[in-house]
Structure formats: C-alpha cells, structure tokens
Design a protein around this nucleic acid. Structure first.
Lengths: 348, 348
DNA sequence: TGTTAGCACTCCATAAACTTGAGTGCTAAC
DNA sequence: GTTAGCACTCAAGTTTATGGAGTGCTAACA
C-alpha cells in the first residue's frame, strides 16, 4: 500500500509536532493541527494504518505515536520544506559568521574551531569538523636547513600549501654546501610524487646517490612518508558535546556517557567525516541505525562536505537527537559550507 | 581548640570511609573501623566537636557526617600517607606507560594526548594537559624560502626546537639572491630576541634596511611576533570527561553539563595549567572552592608541573569529585611527571 | 572526669496504594 | 467513509506507610 495524500499529511503533522514537543502525539492533537478537518477517530484509523506500514510507532499501548526511523527518513527525503527564513534573519546569521571569521583567524585550525563552536551554538546540538585533507597528497617543496649543531630542520610543503616539519639528528656537522646539494637532489627527485610512487623502490635509488649522507636521506624519506600519509593529515574538532544533555531522550547517564565519549574519542567520527557522498549538494543525513555507530543509534547525524580552493576537502557534521530540527540543521550547514569556501579564500 | 591525636584518628577514619563509599558515615561505622576501641556514643561526642570545628558536616540532621573542604584540606596536608604500592604493581604501570610512549609518538602532541588518556583511564577521573611552553620565547632560527610564484614560506625555530611556519604573499617574484640576503639580515637581527625586545622599535630599523622589501619584512615581523606570543604556544588536551558522569554527586545533568562544558571549552583550565607553584615537587591540590571556578566547586583538581629538558614547562591535571582518591591521583601524577621528562629525552 | 548504654526522636529512602489524564480500539450510528 | 461515544489501558504523579540509619541527650558507671 502506498501513502495517499491524506496519510502523507497526517504523517507530516505527526512528525512536525513530535519534533517540536518531543512527546508522543495523540490523535486529538492532529485532528486540531491539520487543515484537513477530520475528527480524532478518523485520525486514529489512519494512524493505525501508518503504524502497520512502519512509519510510526507506539512507545506503549495507550500512548500517542512517535516517528520510526522509516518515518524520519521519508520526512527528510520528501516532506522537508526549505525553511522560509526571513532575509533579515539570514543576513544576521551571515553577519555573525563574518564576525567570527574576522577575529584573528590567521590559522585555519582556529577558524575551524570557531566555526564548529558557532554551529554548535547555533543549532544547540553537538558539532564536529574534519580539517581539510586531500585524497592523495603530493610533495611540492622540501628543504633541509642546519639549525644548530647536529640538528637538521626538514620542512615540507604539500599540495594545498600544508606545511609540515620535523627535526632530524645527524652525526657530525653538515656544511652549507652539502645541504644545498641535498636540497637540490631531494626537490628534483621527490616533488609531485604520491605515497605509492615514493614507496616504489625510490628509497634504494636515492640512498645510492646520496653517498655519505644515506642515513640522513633515509630519515628524510621517513619524514616525507609520514607527512603525506593520509592518517596524518586529518584532525577532528568537536564542540557542544554538552548540548546532548539537553535532550531528555539522550540524557540517561549511560547513553550520554557513551555519546560524549564518542565525541571525545573522535575515532568513530571518521566514519562520517571521510566517505562523504557527492550528491545532494554534499549534504548527508544519517538517521538512527543508519549511523552504523552503536552509541549513536538514538541520534541522527547531518554532514556537509566543504571544499577549499585547492581541492582540499573536509566535512562538517552535526549530531543531535533523532527528533532534531532537520530543516534548521541542513540550512545552517549549507550556509556554513558556502561561507567556509568563501572565507578561506579571503584569509589565505 | 586544637585537634588531639584521637580526634585526628577519628577524622581520618571518617574521611577514608567516605572516600571509599561516598555515603555519609555514621558513628557506629567508625566505632568498628578504628583500632582505638571506642563506643559509638563516644564517637558521637567527638564528631559533634569535629563538626563544631568545621572539619565535617551533616547533610541533614540524623544523617552521618561527610568531610568539609577544611576536612579534605587537613587530610591532604597532614594525613595522607604514601600509597604503599606493591613494587610489582608499580612496575606494571610503568610498563604500560612505556608501551604508550613507544607506539609511534614522533610528535610531542600525540604523546601528550596519549598520556592524558592514560591518566584518565588509570584514575577514572578527567585529565587535562597543557603543551609545554616557555615563559619567554626566543627566536633561534628563521628562514624564508620561495615555494612557488608569489608565495614565500617563512619557517621559524624557537628556543626548545618548536617549529612554526607561515605562508606569506608577496607582490612579484623574488630571486634567490634577494631571499638569501633577507635571510641573513633576519637571522642576524632577530635571533635570540624576546617579544619585548622585538616590540622596541625594531620594526622601523629593519624596514629601513630592507629597502624595497619593507612590505615583506613587515609581514615577517608580524609572523614572528605571533609565533613567539605566549598565547600562541600553549594548547590544552583533555580526556575522560565522561568519567565525571560516574560519580553520583556530580551526575545531575546541570552540574555535569557545566563541568564537561568547562573541559571542552578549555578556557577556564588555563587557571590551573599556567601558574603552577614550585613547592611540593610541583604537585598542587585544589579542593572545592579553592579551584576558583564556579562550575568546579564540587570538584577537586590535582596538578603536576613537568619540565622538559630545554626548560619547556607544562602542566598535567586531574579533575574529579572532592572525594577523589587523592593518594592514587598524586601517585599517578608523580610517576607520569617523571616518565614524561624521561621519555621526552628519548624521542627527540 | 571520661566513657558507655539506652531511649526517644528525626529524617530519608523505598515501596505500596491510589489518582489522574491522555490516548487508544472498537462499535454503532450517521 | 466518517464520526460520536464508551470502556479500557497504561504511565506518571501524589499521597501514605514503613523501616532503618543515625543523632542528641540523659543517666549510670569505672
């Protein structure tokens, strides 16, 4: 059986009401709420159908209905309307964001932390963000310098102007000329290569050419491999974990502890923040079990992928109760995503 | 009235018992617990005295007694005994720590995060750590390199081998010779200077000498100032925030939310993590209101200052309920502190 | 004078009994 | 197909008992 228009309207009314109140919603409420004038008894009949179809469920007999995961899913896929937000309001939000961006955010990390906090504050849910990272990093520039005594500073610039560095120790001092030679050798050999290419026999070749300095070259190669390894180039920031505690359905200490723990641990979050889908303007919604994370089965997660100019991609996400205000969250993430792309160009 | 030996023993027994159980402790319990054989009635008399003196208090009439802040204070100052931990056990803990340190901790930050987690896991309280930072940073080495087009990479090494970098934009391309000259100029002028010294009119002097490149020099100076500014060089990591939820006295959602929020925000934590006292082997205990942080008035905080070889100092702290196991925490922090100093030498 | 036994009293915690109200399913009538 | 009405269910809140832990005080004892 497919959903006819009336059932759709009723389901929509149930979900909307539940999103607002968080309480199971009864037939009488809906009978008053909707524009189609129906008595509570009729609504009850329809509700029984909807329940049989799996869109809503009863916490217990003689309670109202709440949306099931399937219900939420059809809601976000087909019923959610664009929030007709007043231009005024939008303007204001944009201003806020601009302010955040202008306050001394010379470093991308600070920017991202601020954005995360802003999103958490704005939505009243928990927010997370992954730092932008490339799918395959390439080395763009490498340089060794003698800092003092036996310490050599190795600076690497990756595609996308990400800078990494490492201090290496050598036996005995190196004169400037040797360093110059090494720099030329390294730059001419390594630039533009990906991780796989470096792994393919390059080590032997380079150490051969390096003669006396083969030890140092080995250390440098290790540093390069480390720098361009995918694990190395992503960090996750979170904010607003405590917002979770605001929602009674998540606020038994068991659940809350697991959830906040997951946010703190950050390991599990990579799930959401890496394999972003390309469709739907980069906005993804995971409901309940769809999150594939046990501790989040009572939550929903909304993510958006942002892309900076150099092809650096990152993801920002919001975690909240299943009855989150999806429209608002989607709207917020979309606007943040746009501004992020924009703002980054301004600060670099 | 001063505390005679018997009152001390009774107070100690009350606190020990309360630390274990978290329940108000009654006179009969103590009468059985202590070696001095006294009836519960006598204990009651003594308890009344102790209460009058402010060391213990009653949640309500006809309940047992719990320690007051003053009680905790005298406990940690005078009654706490060294945990006579079995050598075996200690050895094991050290091993664990070593393992953590050996797992791929080429970067100090990873090390510190691991340590924080280990401390949180070990104590079952929340842990925090500040990255090592110097009181007055000095520049040790600075170098500009042309990376591509109009982008100049500025790398700075500070005393203590902390590396910072920034990408600067210039108008038009710079040839290698100009860069070489600038590098010599910058190194000879800036090295070894502190923030104050740089602020004192250096800008004018340098830009004068730089001729055409005065714009670039200004940008470089900004980068240097930013790099050695004290705010810039400290980060805080936390772990185990959810452990807070384990303790019923902190686990109403109001309190917990504030506390975990504070841990997340990290701003308030600087209180503890900066002005470390030197006495008492660097270990400090703040009880209840002594924390000077409203949201932590039901908590105690224990901090230890660690010092790396180059004079880099940081602080590690544990946050838990007032009835925390002070002995264990102090012991853990002491051992971590020692190992941190030690381990750092090994990995650099 | 310090210590102890005993007793009346207080207060919290827990459980049991009761009440309330929202909501349902079903049937019969429109 | 829709609606009114009624009996029924269940959760949540309120009240009422009950038990137990603990105290303070007094009087007796060594």
């Amino acid at each position: 059986m497919d959903l006819d228009e009336r059932k759709m309207k009723i389901l929509q009314a149930i979900i909307r009401t539940y999103l607002e109140t968080g309480e199971p919603v009864g037939s009488r409420t809906i009978s008053k709420y909707t524009d189609l004038n129906l008595s509570s008894a009729t609504i009850r009949n329809e509700m029984a159908d909807l329940e049989e179809l799996g869109y809503i469920l009863q916490p217990h007999t003689s309670a109202g209905r709440i949306p099931s995961d399937k219900g939420y899913r059809i809601y976000v896929d087909e019923m959610m309307r664009e929030r007709e937000e007043s231009l005024n309001n939008r303007e204001k939000k944009l201003d806020e964001m601009q302010n955040i961006l202008l306050e001394k955010v010379d470093r991308v990390e600070t920017l991202l932390q601020n954005v995360t906090r802003a999103v958490a504050d704005n939505t009243k849910y928990a927010a997370m963000i992954s730092t932008p990272h490339m799918h395959d990093n390439r080395l763009k520039f490498i340089q060794l310098s003698s800092v003092e005594g036996e310490k050599i500073l190795c600076v690497m610039v990756l595609e996308g102007n990400i800078v990494k560095n490492k201090i290496l120790k050598v036996e005995g001092q190196l004169d400037n000329e040797t360093i110059l030679k090494l720099n030329i050798l390294l730059n001419s050999t390594l630039n533009g290569l990906t991780l796989e290419q470096i792994h393919m026999g390059l080590v032997a070749k380079l150490t051969g050419q390096a003669g006396e300095q083969s030890e140092l070259i080995k250390a440098v190669l290790d540093a390069v491999v480390e720098a361009i390894s995918p694990e190395e180039d992503m960090r996750i920031y979170t904010s607003g974990a405590t917002n979770i505690l605001k929602y009674p359905e998540l606020n038994d200490s068991e659940r809350a502890s697991l959830l906040i723990g997951a946010l703190e641990e950050k390991q599990m979050l990579t799930n959401f923040l890496t394999n972003g889908d390309e469709e739907n303007k980069g906005i993804q919604i995971y409901i309940g079990d769809e999150t594939l994370v046990q501790s989040m089965k009572d939550c929903s997660v909304v993510t958006a992928t942002y892309e900076l100019e150099d092809g650096l991609k990152g993801t920002i996400g919001v975690i909240g109760p299943k009855r989150m205000d999806y429209e608002k969250v989607v709207e917020t993430l979309r606007s943040v995503k746009e501004q992020l792309d924009d703002a980054y160009r301004r600060i670099t």
